[in-house]
Design a protein around this nucleic acid. Structure first.
Lengths: 339, 339
DNA sequence: CTGTTAGCGCATTCAC
DNA sequence: GTGAATGCGCTAACAG
């Protein structure tokens, strides 16, 4: 089948349910039943209709179905930004789930800009989508579930997130068990739920090991690599510098590696570093990063299934899901150097 | 405005054009004219309607508009896979353009699987979208433009791609000008247009400098990092190993860095490496990668504008766009070591 | 089991 | 300038 020479031709070429009905000598309703695989159709009628449908390549018009049925089959997904494998991984999971449910994913980016967030939220309620997966929380009269919430959410808002605290705890314990006592932490931006919970995990591990947390050992970053190198330099410039650094994500851990490289420090010989996320980046770096794996794709996938469940049951349930994280030990951690 | 307690309530809460018309004491047609900013409306009527619209938060229902107007305002975008900043960058550009045109982007992944590609193509023509940006070329009766074609395309298929040949030429010339004569190349998969053109650029630069290309200096990879380390080892195991390696993308260049690291080779001291893409990865690595910048976001953006132009003119034009690439010199290249 | 009948919400002729 | 009427393609009662 060659490409249509122009759009008009393409549009005209679309077969409607009425034409199929006429061709098959049945009513529109019957065709509808067949294509929606309803049970109450005689086998022979079904076969007949199916044949005509096949022959003419009929596909039901989604717009019409949406208008009539009240559901578009689209779900929206807002994401702060595309770059970095972090969000891509979540998106990938969501796409997978959406594909399996024969729905479509309408993508929006907010770029972390407030204006943009507002306008995206507005667009979300224009009927183009049935619901949304949101990577930023806002109140709005629209069915949605928040994935990986940036800030603490009201109860009653469905959300799926990862076990940040437990992951950070495991990461710090790992360092502790290796013999480290001066363990620096590069945190995410203050106010972000994930960043806060990871600090908490770091603190509890320290406390459990009887190590006194010092605020000078915590430097704040913004989840981007450059902030990681800056923070690493601050930490390493300390009179009594850390022998290990736990960064709140892999990007910043990459920054730590870069800073170490600049100072001629070997990893893990002179400095151990642990990341968080287990993004693709973690295994691309040398040495490969010891990090905490977040089930990113699962996050996206779970978000979709939560949403579709809400959509089907016709009512919003307050559901909270927390997915487990786990430490992945690779090459960037080892015992501290002897003094 | 609090969240609707359940979906039914949410759905009922949507205001229709008819209600606005009644409230404003005008006809449906008038409201339609106003919200679509048609000229032929009296200023006072316009203001009145606008006020009512604002007050009730009316938004025109996209499904109804799509059914009535024959255009959904959605455009599809198929992408092989989400991971890696490469496709993300293209997607980002496309999203930007789509946002500006007040359209929506429906995302599909093919995972490079043939079955998946076919089913995605089918879904594309179900009326959910007006047209598509495709990262894989197939003939189908549907308006689309191919971005970054994987294989050579028939004339007559609108496409936008980057200047692979020129970029590879610049990269190789750079190495040559530094004094390198044994320059290895890690290519992309055979048959991919981008890979082939980059090899051609590499060859012409060599030829222009009077250096005889040797096939042993070309190793094939698959654009992923592990294939880069494998290929690098092959090249470096040569009796007369290269002093510089030009990898066909940044992922594989990262693999080369990793291989060098494993062998205790310093970059660029013992080995120079050049990548291609200038993905985010390039500046996260240490040393930062000298690479050829592809205008990834521009690729996506241009794809969208090409498509919308096609959609508006109501006919398919055969347009071919090639966007310029440019060499970005960073830390991973330098003169060859003295023998 | 199957056909008939109503809309779904909107854009768009046309008259006025 | 404005309103009434028509249809986009389909699903969902209902009736037979």
């Amino acid at each position: 089948m060659a490409r249509a020479a122009n759009l008009d031709e393409y549009r005209r070429s679309k077969v409607t349910i009425r034409e199929i009905a006429d061709l098959a000598g049945v009513s529109i309703a019957t065709v509808s039943r067949v294509v929606n695989s309803r049970g109450d159709v005689a086998p022979e009628t079904r076969d007949l209709v199916m044949r005509v449908v096949q022959e003419h390549g009929y596909m039901t018009n989604r717009s019409a179905r949406a208008l009539s049925g009240g559901r578009t089959g689209h779900i929206g997904l807002t994401i702060p930004l595309m770059r970095g494998d972090y969000f891509a991984a979540i998106l990938e999971g969501a796409l997978e789930a959406v594909y399996e449910e024969d729905m479509r994913l309408v993508l929006y980016t907010t770029l972390h800009e407030h204006d943009r967030e507002v306008s995206v939220l507005e667009r979300l309620s224009d009927g183009a989508t049935d619901g949304a997966i949101i990577l930023l929380p806002e109140e709005c009269g629209f069915p949605f579930v928040v994935v990986d919430p940036r800030i603490p959410l009201d109860d009653g808002i469905p959300a799926v997130s990862a076990a940040h605290r437990a992951g950070a705890l495991a990461a710090t314990e790992h360092l502790l068990s290796l013999g480290h006592r001066r363990i620096g932490h590069i945190s995410g931006p203050a106010g972000w739920a994930a960043a806060t919970e990871r600090i908490e995990g770091y603190h509890s591990a320290l406390a459990a090991a009887g190590v006194l947390p010092t605020s000078e050992l915590i430097a704040e970053g913004n989840f981007e690599a450059p902030s990681g190198v800056a923070a690493a330099h601050i930490l390493l410039d300390l009179p009594d510098p850390p022998t290990a650094i736990f960064a709140s994500n892999d990007n910043m851990a990459a920054g730590v590696l870069q800073a170490a490289h600049e100072r001629g420090l070997t990893v893990p010989g002179d400095l151990s570093v642990v990341g968080f996320d287990d993004a693709d980046l973690a295994t691309i770096l040398s040495p490969e990063l010891t990090t905490v794996r977040q089930p990113l794709a699962e996050l996206g996938r779970t978000g979709v299934s939560l949403l579709t469940r809400m959509l089907e049951r016709q009512r919003v349930e307050a559901l909270r899901v927390e997915l487990a994280t786990r430490l992945v030990v690779r090459e960037s951690t080892g015992p501290p150097a002897q003094r």
